[in-house]
Design a protein around this nucleic acid. Sequence first.
DNA 1: ATTGAATTGACTGACTGTCAGTCAGTGTGT
DNA 2: ACACACTGACTGACAGTCAGTCAATTCAAT
Lengths: 209, 209
Amino acid sequence: MARITKAPEERRLEIVQTAERLFREVGYAKCSVEMIIQRIGIAKGTFYYYFKSKEAILEAIADQTLGQIVEYAKDIADNPSLSALAKFETLLTNSHVGNVDTQDISDILHLPENRELHELTNVKSVLQLSPIFAKIVSQGNQEGVFAADRPLARIQYVFVATQFLLDGGLFQFSDQEIRERREIAQELIEKTLGAAPGSFDFMNPTLES
Amino acid sequence: MARITKAPEERRLEIVQTAERLFREVGYAKCSVEMIIQRIGIAKGTFYYYFKSKEAILEAIADQTLGQIVEYAKDIADNPSLSALAKFETLLTNSHVGNVDTQDISDILHLPENRELHELTNVKSVLQLSPIFAKIVSQGNQEGVFAADRPLARIQYVFVATQFLLDGGLFQFSDQEIRERREIAQELIEKTLGAAPGSFDFMNPTLES
DNA sequence: ATTGAATTGACTGACTGTCAGTCAGTGTGT
DNA sequence: ACACACTGACTGACAGTCAGTCAATTCAAT
């Protein structure tokens, strides 16, 4: 077959992007390496030249996505002109923080067959994002809006609960159940951080359109 | 080969038990159906005569274990001579409730390669156990030791956090980190249920041996 | 400067081994 | 003679390997 060489960067990206699209279309388990390489038009060996296993590329995709989110969160957290509460509002309402899934990738992750990847991503996102949130909590302590010792442990607790309970597919809750649990989440986050009741009202907008 | 026929019940149990032990020893993914049947001395077809897939037996094992725990929890919850707090203490300290894993099966579940099963079990245990806990919370409300509306949603929130955060392998925390997070957990559970500070001291025993 | 030999590293694809799952058929108790 | 437990060779699919190919790059000799 005609041999086409590309810059490693480019090839790697090509493989990642194609794999990502296929994982979304048919699910990780059902997507064979064969499918990926045929779609691109490369040989089996090329795939394994870049990735040591099929799982490795999955992690690469997840890490890449999470990396973008972490970067975004850091930007917000380090912005000196925002109050702690404003930072929380930005991170929790806008954006995909607290919900690892980019719009694009969320479908993949919520397929039942991708449970494993999903949990992996959830865990990683908690571990990487919680220190950033903890920093914001410390800022809030200094501003006097929070009163929370051991910010990291506290943030992790509520983060995990919110992440795993409210995040997409895991618990198959109805809209009503989700709404109720989000209200509880707000109350508990406020209590956990020692914030005034209502501080996190943005989590439960009363939609009057 | 010499053909040995057994009562279906017995055969089924034999398969489940052997599979359970092997999953523990080598992990679910790395344990082939071949291994299981060779250990027992049956043919491939026999395995598939009893279970429609490899995953099916995994679920059977998980369900069986969870079933025992749920039954135990129900017994405690329905015991009219125990106070709500006593019930919580029994369920949270003794036993494997809030930690699906039986001593025996916990090793399997915490192998990294069994992440999928692990999450499955965690989710199922939350869904099945939380209504039981919610009942105890209602009892506590009547006794005046708790003040918690929407008990189910509340319980699920703290349950998920505690389960996913503190349970075994997921977050690879050190002993020190676990201890700190358990203290936070106690505080938040008390706040969630509107219980007096210290009500759940049994969660963090000061060990003076 | 030009040649061409040596080296590198991206790339190939036939091949291996493994495994989940199937099925046509066999033995056994009632 | 019937049904039900059981058999094991077989299939198809797949992840991963490896010996080798090819083109670009480097560099030493002319």
